[in-house]
Design a protein around this nucleic acid. Structure first.
Lengths: 201, 201
DNA sequence: GTCTATACTCTGATAGAC
DNA sequence: GTCTATCAGAGTATAGAC
């Protein structure tokens, strides 16, 4: 069902992928069942399998569309921009992704936790070259004294881990903060200040 | 099998819990099977079920012993110690936990990702009070001008996320760094410098 | 204490009517 | 395109021999 030809097909394909995102992101691939996905999508199980030939195919379709979105903010770092502004904007965008697409973040986390069986190739083939490219930009900025000298790749890891934490560990974050808190607003202020200070040479 | 009475029972119980940690931490609760656990433990499936009455019971036993270890470093923060030293030691201990017990970290991450169905009570009952207690200590240190003023709980979140990232996302970390890197050694230096700078008023 | 055999349920996937 | 019915295999758990 790569090319939906009718409105119904487009709507059902979308419903299935959305339901699958819901279930896969909270249960992992093996823990999710087609029954659950079909129920959330509001379809029968055989009908789901009319749109996708197998459970695996649904998962692959999800991961495929995930990675483009996921890497966009990193791609958007502009080598010609103001260094500190570029990095802090990147942090902000990553946190917005966690806030607006927490299921995508958890789907990704689940995949990596399980050893990235379906994603390792993409990580090595797409993510690593992109990281190498941007790490070189960061290094140049450090050489020029525009930002503090830090190991560039670990700087990226710290951005990923802190921003994704608010999506992936949302339950724990809210339980520990208690009621009356807005985790993402507070995180935005905290991370803004953190990287402002950290990046100042 | 709460009180093993013979050497064989002690050894088998231990083998089962170790195997279960291996499988649950990489597959999640639903994704793991008793077949896998029994095979890793070197026992037959019925024999495994002689030691634990159900899959659920194995999982509960694992989570129970997990949390004590997991909270120890936070408990160890000494209100009477030197503030910056205490916090940086905490970061170091947490990173050592990630390095030496990555499966425990991933088991915990899996649980939270899945909405903490078996852990939310402990988080609210044990973790939150402990965090509140230590956050008060951090706040006092900030009031006294010993360390920079930051939202204390979010400071703890940043420590948890950055240190656990190296265990939970190990596959991605190694794939992005490429060969010839020692993630945990590099992370230790990076995080040491990061918090040294961040905490300086 | 450990094994073989098996009961029973769940799950992914297919057949075929409409 | 969607449904009911159903199959084959995997999965949890139990019975009972040794």
């Amino acid at each position: 069902m790569t090319k939906p030809r009718t409105r119904i097909q487009a709507r059902n394909s979308k419903a299935i992928l959305d339901a699958a995102l819901e279930v896969f992101s909270s249960q992992g691939f093996r823990g999710a069942t087609l029954d659950q996905i079909a129920e959330v999508a509001g379809l029968s199980k055989p009908n789901l399998l009319y749109y996708f030939p197998s459970k695996e195919a649904v998962h692959v379709a999800l991961l495929g569309q995930l990675l483009k979105t996921w890497l966009d903010p990193l791609r958007a770092i502009n080598p010609a921009g103001d260094p500190k502004t570029e990095i802090i904007s990147y942090v902000r965008r990553k946190l917005e992704l966690s806030r607006d697409f927490p299921r995508e973040s958890r789907l990704f986390a689940n995949e990596i936790l399980q050893g990235a069986p379906r994603l390792l190739g993409v990580i090595e083939g797409d993510l690593k070259p992109l990281v190498d490219e941007k790490a070189a930009v960061l290094s140049r900025w450090m050489d020029e004294g525009k930002i503090a000298r830090l190991p560039p790749v670990h700087l990226l890891f710290s951005i990923w881990s802190m921003t994704q934490h608010y999506a992936d560990f949302d339950v724990q974050v809210r339980a520990v903060l208690g009621p009356g808190h807005d985790p993402f607003t507070e995180a935005g202020d905290f991370l803004n200040g953190l990287f402002e200070k950290l990046l100042t040479p």
